[in-house]
Design a protein around this nucleic acid. Sequence first.
DNA 1: CGAGATAATCTAACAATGTTTTATAACACC
DNA 2: GGTGTTATAAAACATTGTTAGATTATCTCG
Lengths: 181, 181
Amino acid sequence: MSPRPAPDLDRRRDQITATARELAEAEGWAAVTMRRLAKELGATQPVLYSAFPDGRQSLVDAVALSGFTEIAATLESVPPEPAARMRAYLDFATRHPRLYEAMFALPSGLEFGASSSPEPLRRAFAAIQAAFPGADARAEVAWAALHGLATLQAGGRLPASRAQARVEHLDKMLARAESTG
Amino acid sequence: MSPRPAPDLDRRRDQITATARELAEAEGWAAVTMRRLAKELGATQPVLYSAFPDGRQSLVDAVALSGFTEIAATLESVPPEPAARMRAYLDFATRHPRLYEAMFALPSGLEFGASSSPEPLRRAFAAIQAAFPGADARAEVAWAALHGLATLQAGGRLPASRAQARVEHLDKMLARAESTG
DNA sequence: CGAGATAATCTAACAATGTTTTATAACACC
DNA sequence: GGTGTTATAAAACATTGTTAGATTATCTCG
C-alpha cells in the first residue's frame, strides 16, 4: 500500500506564483484566469487547486507576499536614509505596477498590523521605519505619502513630469518634521 | 411613424447609479452584479444596458464620478485651510469606503490630468490646491499623503489608534513646507 | 518480476457572471 | 383604428472560478 509520490508542492507553488506574476505584469490581472494560467504552465486547472486549495484569492495573496519579500530586500539594500529609501520604494512600485497592485489595491486576505501578519510585511514596514526614526506617526505618514504617490502616479492621476519635484518636496517636508519627533 | 416614448435615461441612470452605490456600500462591490442590481431595481438586465450601453464598467465609473462631485462639494464647504480640508477629505473616505474604492482603487475608465478629464475631478483637486497654495508639487504631495492615509487606514493597514496623531503630523509637515513654495 | 492499493491527475460538469440576441409588447402618429 | 418604430423581456451565449467522478501512474508487497 503505497501511493503515487506526492509532488513537491512548495516548488509547484513557487512556479505557479512566478508565472501568475509574469502574466499579470504582462497583461494585467484580469488576464490571470485559472484556465489561462494552467495553459501557460502546461497543466490543468485542478493542479492549481492542489497547490492552492483556497483558490485564486490565495494565489494572488501568494504573489503579493512575494512582492513584500522583494520590496523589503530592495529597501534594505540601500542606506536607511529618507531620500534613498523613498526613491527605492517609488522605483519598485514603478517597475512592478501589477505586483504593487496585488500588494495594495487588489482584494487581499493578508493580515496587516497585527502580530499575526506575515513576516515580509513587517520587514517591509520596518525598512521604512528605519529611515524615519522618531514617533511612529512619522514613519506611518511617510509610508502613506509614498503609497499615495505610487498609486496616483501609476494610475496616471498625477503628471509624470513633476514626479521628481514631488519626491524632493516630500523629502524636505519629512526632513523638517524630524525634530518634531 | 412614431416610436414608443424614450424613457428618461438621465433619470434612470441616476437611479441605477444610486442603487449601485448603496448596494456596494452595504455589501461590497463584489455583490454589485448586473442581475442583483436589476432585481434590486425591479427591472431586468437589458434595462441596465439601455442606460449604460458600455456595461458594468461604465456604471462603476458613474458611481465614481458621483463620488468626485460629492467630495468636491464637501471640501468646498469648509474653509480652504490645510487642517480643515484634510479632515474633510479623510472623513469622506472613512464614511464612504466603497465609494472611495470606486473612485481610486477599482479599475476605472475615468480620465485624469488631461484637460479632457471630467469637471468633478478637476474641481475636487482644485479644492485641495486651494488649501495648499504655492508650487503644484505641494498640493500634489498633500493629496498623495491624504490618499495614502485614506487607503491604508481603510484596509486596516495602519492602526486606527494613531489616526489622529498622523493627521497632526501631516498638518505640521505641510505647514512647514509652505515657505518652500 | 508482477499485482494491487493509493493518491495525483484529467475530463467534464456545475453554478454564476457579463453581455447579447430574438421575440414580444407598448406607444405615438396618420 | 391601423402601422411602424422602439423599449422591454425572456432566454441564450461565452467565460469565469470551482468541484466531482473517473482514470492513470507509481510504489510496495508478494
